[in-house]
């Protein structure tokens, strides 16, 4: 046997989920950058987004990007929601979220002690991913209400008329960007998770059961991190 150790793969993300994830990343990026240019045309608050951080060149261009990419965003997330509900992906991966576990995980995360388990989400991850899915739904609904306050009057009325829907759209964007900031930071801090969103698996080396740790020398964390 030429192989001296066996690496074990933990399968994390099915191919469809990976495809949907990266399509969503692209759609959200375009929606946000063009959305910021649209915001700048008539800012809700006392600030504007820097020009270089926006997409579209001017308002008409930004609107074209926004109203083209919205279809991809809607289709992509509809497929994801259907998949998540029908296959039980949400139920298995995101639920349950226990409040006490969330408190413990949050405390550990803030003290950098929270361990990442490949293939299973901790309570903090679960609640963040549920929030992201929810925020995207809110963004689509409030966006459609802002776009069609007359034809989709019921939706717009629910969100507080045109101006209410516009505010909801802005704050849902801000919260989603807060999620994205944490999400991207964590993915960069634990690169194997980023890698697994491409390959669909996390390759682990320490396959030995804990009992055998007494006589098997395990590679140090440095080597482990190289993965």
């Amino acid at each position: 046997m030429s192989h001296t150790i066996k690496s074990k793969s933990v399968y994390t993300h099915p191919l469809l989920v990976r495809l949907l994830h990266w399509t969503n990343a692209l759609a959200i990026l375009v929606m946000v950058l063009s959305g910021w240019r649209i915001y700048n045309a008539s800012p809700l608050f006392d600030f504007s987004f820097p020009r270089w951080l926006t997409l579209g060149g001017w308002l008409a261009g930004a609107l074209q990007w926004h109203f083209a990419m919205m279809w991809l965003l809607i289709i992509n997330n509809s497929v994801y929601l259907a998949y998540g509900v029908v296959t039980g992906h949400f139920r298995k991966k995101f639920f349950p979220v226990s409040k006490s576990q969330l408190r413990t995980d949050l405390k550990q995360a803030l003290t950098c002690k929270l361990r990442h388990m490949p293939g299973a989400y901790n309570a903090l991850q679960r609640s963040l991913y549920i929030s992201a899915v929810f925020l995207i739904i809110v963004l689509v609904v409030s966006g459609l209400s802002t776009w069609k306050p007359v034809q989709l009057h019921g939706l717009a009325w629910f969100l507080g008329d045109y101006e209410g829907a516009r505010l909801v759209h802005f704050f849902a964007m801000a919260l989603l960007m807060f999620f994205v900031a944490i999400h991207v930071a964590m993915a960069l801090l634990v690169p194997k998770t980023l890698l697994s969103m491409f390959t669909g698996k996390v390759v682990t080396v320490a396959t030995t059961p804990p009992l055998q740790l007494t006589y098997v020398e395990i590679p140090s964390t440095e080597a482990g991190d190289a993965l």
């Binding site: 001296t4 150790i5 020398e217 395990i218 590679p219 440095e222 080597a223």
Partner: peptide, 14 residues
Amino acid sequence: KSSLGSNREWLDAN
């Protein structure tokens, strides 16, 4: 067990 003598060996092997 023998192959896991050190980090270097482990890295080389993999």
